[in-house]
Design a binder for these strands. Structure first.
Lengths: 233, 233, 233, 233
DNA sequence: GATGAATGAGGATTCATTCAT
DNA sequence: CATGAATGAATCCTCATTCAT
C-alpha cells in the first residue's frame, strides 16, 4: 500500500537532510550563555539573532565578525556575550529560528491511494520549495559544516538516521516486488537522497543549474522512479 | 554504437567533475611568485609543495599556517614567499601536482562491442578508484571551494563544461531509442553526475557511507542505468 | 588706507602657509576609527595623541612605530586602532591638536593708522614666534609632506588659496601706486611667502640660520618691503 | 665694478644650493663597495646607476627597493652589493652622475661692463634652466635630505659655504653704496637664495607655480634687485 | 542588563643582506 | 664577477573576549 500522507512519506523517502537537520530536536551544538529573563532581554536576543542571520547571509559565516552582528543589532559589542557564547552558538540560534519556520511547512496532505510516483513527486516539490525559500541559509549550513566539526558531525549523524529509515522503506518496496531487487537498499537510499539535495544546492544556492523548479521536480521524480525501478501502476 | 574506450566514454558520460577540474589545462587561480631558475630552487619549491600538501591534509586549509608549511619544509618563513604569493597560491600548486599524477590514469582499455552498462561500470570503477586515492585532496578542494570564491568559480565553470558534453551524449542515446525520452538531457546529466561524485565524497572523504568500493560501483552503475532507462541488450 | 589690524593684514599678506594649513577647517586627511563615547575613551584618546606627538617629535614620522606610541601612552598595542586607522591618521590628530592651540594666537591688535611696513613687521613677528613655538611639528609636517601624498596635496591646495589672496592684495597696492607695478602679483606673492616661511624652517627647524628672532624679523620685513617696492610714508 | 663672468657671479650670488651640492668635490656620503676593475664591471656598474636613477625617479627614494634596481638593470639581486653598500650609496652615485652632467653647464659668458641687474638675470636664467632640466632629481634630493641625516648634513654644510660667500658679496655692494645698508648681509644672502631655489622647487618639482620660465626669471630678478636695494645705473 | 573600551595573542608579510655555486 | 636562493628580524593589524561602570 502506498504511503498516505507526506508526513508518512517522509518517513519513507526522506532525503531532506539539511532541512530536517534543524527540525529535529536533537540538541544543536548550542550552549547559549543565558536564557533571557526579562522582556527587554527577550527583545535584545531576538534582535541579535535577526542581525546574525542578516550578517551571515551577507558576509558568510567565516567573514562575519561578532562586532558586525552587534552593530547590525544596534547593541553594544559586549551584549552579544550575554546571549551567546560564540559565533557558532549564534549560528545555531539562527538555524533554530529557521527551524521554527520550517516546522510548519505548507505540506499538502496526500489522499489515500495515490500512486507511489505522484507521492514522490509531491515530496520532491515540497522539498525543493522549502529549500529554495531558505536557500541562503542552506548554503550557509553547507559552508559551516565544511568548517566546523561540531556542525559536520551533527549533519552526518542525522543523515545516517534518515538513510536508515529510507533504506527500510526501499527494502519493503523490494519485498513487495515494487522495486528493483538488485539494489542495495542502504546505498540506494543514500544515492537518491544525495542526488536530490545536491541538485537543490546547485540550483538554488550556486545557481549553476538553469531550470524552472517545475522542470526540476519532473526530472528528479522520473529519475528517482526509474532508478528504483518502481513499477508504474 | 556503444563507446569503445574509456576515453571515448568520458567524452560521453563524464561526471568526474572534481577530478578533471585539475586535469584540465585551464589555468588554476595560481600566480606563483617565481619559477625557480636553479636546481636548488626547484628542490626547495618541491619541498614546499609537499609540505603544503601534508599540512593541508593534516590541518585543513583554513587552519594551515604559512609558518607551518615552511617549518614542515625545513626552510625559513620568508622562503615560502619566494615561490608562492599566498596560501591559495600554494594550494593551487598542490592541486597542480595531483593534476600531474591524474593525467596518466591507469584506465583500462574497454574492448569493442562492450555493452553500454559494462562501459558505465568501468567508468564508475575508475572514477571511484581515483577519487579514493586522492580522497584527502578531494575533501580539501571541497572545503576550499566553499571558502574561496576563485576556486568556487573555477569549479563551477568546469562543471558546466562537463554537463554540456554529457547532456549531448544523453540526447544522442535518446534519439537512438536507447534512453528514456521523457528526461531533460541537461538536468539528467547534472543529476547523475552529482549523484556519483557526491557518493564518492560521502564515502571516501566523510566516511559516512559504509560499503565496499565494489558494492558502490555495482549500485551506482545500476542506479544510473535504471535512471536513464537504458535498455539492456 | 593701510590695513588696521593683524587680522586684516593676514587677509592681505598671508604667507603663513604651514601655520594656517592646520588652522583652516578644511578637513585634514583624517579618518579616525572612532569618536570616543565615554569619558574613559576621551582620556585614552588624548593620551594616545600626546604619546604620538612625543614619539613623532623624538623619532620622526617614518621611524615611529605604532607599538612605540601605544607603549608611550601606556595602553595595549591594539588600543591604538580603537582611535586611529593608521600612523597617518594619528599624525593628523596631532596636527589637529596644534590646530586648536594656534586658532587662538596671541595676536596683538595693531592700532589704526599704522604704516604698512610696521604692520608687515608685526605679522612677521607673530608668524615667526608661532613657528618657533611649534618648530618640531612644523619640521614633522615638512617631512610627512615629503613622504605622504595626501598631506602633500593638502598643503599645496592650501598654499594656493593663500597665494590667491595675497596676489589680490599686492595687485591692490600696485593700483594705488604703493608697490612696484612691474611685478607679477601671483609670482610675487608666492616668492615672498616662501622666503619667509622657508627662513623660519631653516632657522627653527634646521638651525642653520644663526640669528636672533628679532634680527630675523627686521631683515625679512625690510627685504619684503624693498622687494615689493613699498613706498615709505 | 660689476662681476665679469657668470662664474665670477656665482662666487658672489650663488644660491644654487642643490646644484652645487653635487658639483662640489667634497665627498658625498658614499662608501662604494668596490671600484670596478674589469670592463665588464664598469658596464654593470653603469647599468646599475642608470637603473637606480630610473627607479628612484619613478618610485621615490623610500619606495625604491634594491630588488627593483637590480631587476631594472637586468642583473641578479646580489650584484647590487658588488658595487654599492646600500641604497644611500647608490643614490649618491646617481647624484654623482648628474654632477658630471652639470659640471659643464652651457653658461654664456657675460661681457664686461654688464650692469649688475642683467648679470643677476642671466644667473637666475641659468639656474632655473638647469633646475628644470634635473627637476626629478632635485625633488629626490629634497626627499632624501628629509629622510637621511647624512644627506641633510651635507646639504646644510654646503649651503653655509655658499651663504658665506654671498654674504661677503653683499657686504661689498653695501660698502660701495650699491645696496641697502640696513640689511644684515648673512640673513639677506640666505633669504634671497632660499627664495629663488624654493620657487624653482615649487615650480618644477611640485608644479604649483603656474608660470613660464621667462616670467619667473623676470619676477625673481626684479624682486631680488629690489630687495637688496640695488641702484640701477 | 547594557555599554563600549581595553586587552593581547597570533600570523602574515616584506626585503635588505649574505653566501654557496 | 655574476647568480639567485635563503634567511629571519621586525612590525603591522585583527578581533574575540573580558570587565569595570
Amino acid at each position: 500500500m502506498a504511503p498516505r500522507t507526506l508526513v508518512e512519506l517522509e518517513a519513507n523517502f526522506n532525503y531532506m537532510v539539511e532541512w530536517e537537520t534543524v527540525a529535529q530536536h536533537q540538541a544543536l551544538p548550542s550552549r547559549t550563555g543565558q536564557a533571557p529573563a526579562s522582556a527587554r532581554g527577550t527583545r535584545t536576543r531576538r534582535e541579535l539573532v535577526r542581525a546574525a542571520r542578516r550578517v551571515f547571509e551577507r558576509d558568510g559565516f567565516l567573514a562575519a565578525r561578532i562586532t558586525d552582528i552587534s552593530a547590525e543589532a544596534g547593541v553594544a559589542a559586549g551584549s552579544f556575550y550575554t546571549y551567546f557564547t560564540s559565533k557558532e552558538d549564534a549560528f545555531a540560534a539562527v538555524m533554530e529560528e529557521v527551524n521554527e519556520e520550517m516546522l510548519h511547512p505548507r505540506l499538502v496532505q496526500v489522499t489515500d491511494g495515490g500512486d507511489p510516483v505522484s507521492v514522490i513527486e509531491a515530496a520532491n516539490r515540497a522539498y525543493l520549495a522549502s529549500y529554495r525559500r531558505n536557500a541562503k541559509l542552506m548554503g550557509l549550513l553547507e559552508q559551516v559544516a565544511q568548517v566546523n566539526d561540531e556542525f559536520r558531525e551533527l549533519r552526518l549523524r542525522r543523515a545516517r538516521a534518515f538513510v536508515d529509515r529510507n533504506a527500510q522503506a526501499i527494502a519493503r518496496l523490494q519485498q513487495r516486488g515494487l522495486a528493483d531487487r538488485e539494489l542495495d537498499p542502504r546505498l540506494t537510499a543514500h544515492a537518491v537522497s544525495t542526488m536530490v539535495s545536491r541538485m537543490a544546492y546547485l540550483t538554488y544556492v550556486q545557481g549553476v543549474v538553469d531550470a524552472s523548479s517545475e522542470a526540476l521536480v519532473q526530472t528528479l521524480t522520473r529519475l528517482w522512479a526509474n532508478a528504483l525501478g518502481i513499477r508504474r501502476s
